[in-house]
Amino acid sequence: MASIKILVVEDDDINREIIHEFLTFGEVNIDLAADGLEAISWVKSNQYDIIIMDLMMPNLDGLAATRMIRTLDVNNSAQVPIIASTARDPATELAHWQAAGITDYVHKPFSEDELWAVINTYI
């Protein structure tokens, strides 16, 4: 696999560590953000192949952060796939997520294989 760069945005330390472990192998470069504000900062200074975005976070939630990322005119921010990582119900909320700029989602709790299946759709 060619080198890919992923930003993981997750406020829960344990979930952030689990996702990091799922992604840690080979040529994967990972940056970690604890909330939407930190994610915006990372996106302004780095280009990512994938962003994994928790939807429920303090300071700036995942949907608001996604909307802001989509309006930035830097580092391919308008096109980078943003994958929601959420326990919320996609059956009732997916259209709302997509309107905010979410590309796809993984439903918590998810396995490493489930996460990679979604990521592989976009890389």
Rank of each mutant, 00 (worst) to 15 (best):
I4M: 11
S77L: 00
K5W: 02
G101L: 03
N29G: 12
N29T: 13
E114S: 14
M1C: 09
D89I: 05
M68V: 12
V43G: 03
R67W: 05
I40F: 03
T92F: 00
L94Q: 08
D11L: 07
I14F: 13
H107K: 15
D54E: 03
V8T: 08
A2S: 14
A33R: 08
E93I: 08
Q98D: 03
F22E: 14
D104P: 09
Q98M: 09
A91K: 14
P109W: 09
D35T: 03
Y105F: 15
I52R: 00
F25M: 13
I51P: 00
F25G: 05
D104T: 06
A84D: 09
Y122Q: 00
F110A: 01
A33G: 08
L32M: 12
T121A: 10
Y105Q: 07
S3H: 12
A91M: 00
D31T: 11
L55P: 07
I83T: 06
V43K: 06
I50A: 03
V80D: 03
D89A: 06
I19R: 03
H96I: 13
M56N: 12
I4W: 02
G62S: 07
A78D: 13
I19N: 06
G36R: 07
V80G: 10
V118Y: 06
N46G: 05
I50S: 01
E21R: 14
S3N: 12
L63Q: 07
I82E: 01
A84L: 10
I69G: 00
I69C: 09
N120W: 11
G101Q: 01
H20R: 12
I18D: 15
T103W: 06
W97N: 01
D89G: 08
V80I: 11
A117S: 14
P81Q: 05
R70G: 06
D12P: 00
I4F: 08
G26T: 10
Y48V: 08
S3Q: 14
F22C: 02
R88H: 13
V74W: 08
S111Q: 00
N75T: 04
R16E: 08
T24D: 15
F110I: 05
I82C: 09
D11C: 04
I123M: 11
A99T: 11
D89L: 03
Q98T: 10
H107R: 13
R88K: 14
